[in-house]
Amino acid sequence: MSPHQLDVLISLVERKIPGWVKPTGRPHALPLWRAVVVLCFLLRHNNAQAAAAELFEIYQPTVSWYGTRLRPIVRDALKMLDFGLARLPGSEPVLVDGFLAKSWDWKAAERLFSKKHQASGHNIQVVANTRGRLQAVDTPLPGARHDASACRASGIADKIRRHPRLGDKGYQGLDLLTPYKKPPGRKLTNAEKDCNRAHSAIRSAVERCIGHLENWKILGERYRGPLSVFPEVLETVTQLEPLRAWKPA
């Protein structure tokens, strides 16, 4: 994030935690602005907490406490900016795609393994506009879920009903505009191939959007934390990413 974007984030968090600097008692190890930087560092780079502790010259339990304490506050503070579908005109098309956020293969969690990706994790459904800007991400689902099934179950399909919608072949049957499949017994016509190329050119924006999300390494690399915390981590990152891409007028 740019210094200006970070200033916006810190000012929003300060409103949520006005009493960070205590007049009496033991002070926090870091000022609030630096604690927010620690949280962003953990989400952006997915480093071990011990490495973050050494870098910021604090103890590992303090790093863990900052992450637990500040994640929901950062998430809720950024919701005040109202990024996403709420700002998007109903006539503007949206692009839908999914990706696998990898995690350890916890035996207590069912259906995490995705045969398509040959890895364990969560199926994340992403909505972007045609400029590749993130508009919505909803409930993470087990990685074994097919994209079409995950789109319905996550709640994304209901959120985008008022928009023209584009998806890849995995979303056929969901009232999205999808590419032509090769029918049995004949090849695609030239017109159908041209439509597929145009569709692919437009839909590439959502793939760029997913690439930006995966640059937050806690989603792009293997997630190591408790699975019960992952929905909160995902929601925090998907509030931070629109801020990172935001440029004031």
Rank of each mutant, 00 (worst) to 15 (best):
S2L: 11
S2G: 04
D7H: 14
V8Y: 04
L9I: 00
L9P: 00
L12K: 15
P18L: 03
T24V: 14
P31N: 03
W33N: 15
V36Q: 02
V36N: 02
L39T: 10
C40E: 07
A48C: 12
A48Q: 15
Q49V: 06
A51D: 12
A53L: 05
E54T: 09
Q60Y: 03
T62M: 05
T62F: 01
V63C: 10
P72R: 01
V74S: 07
D76Q: 15
K79E: 15
D82L: 12
D97M: 05
A101V: 05
A109S: 09
R111S: 13
L112T: 00
F113R: 06
K115P: 11
K116C: 08
S120T: 01
N123P: 01
Q125D: 03
G132S: 14
Q135N: 08
L141M: 10
P142Q: 12
G143Y: 09
G143A: 08
G143S: 04
D147Y: 00
D147M: 11
A153V: 10
S154H: 00
K159Y: 05
K159T: 03
I160L: 05
R161S: 02
R165T: 14
L166E: 06
D168F: 00
G170R: 07
D175Q: 13
L176M: 06
K181M: 07
L188I: 11
T189Q: 15
D194P: 12
I202M: 12
A205G: 14
E207P: 09
R208D: 12
L213T: 04
I218M: 14
I218A: 11
L219G: 00
G220A: 06
Y223A: 14
F230W: 03
E232M: 10
V233E: 02
V233A: 04
V233Y: 00
L234G: 01
E235G: 11
E235F: 13
L240F: 04
L243M: 09
L243H: 02
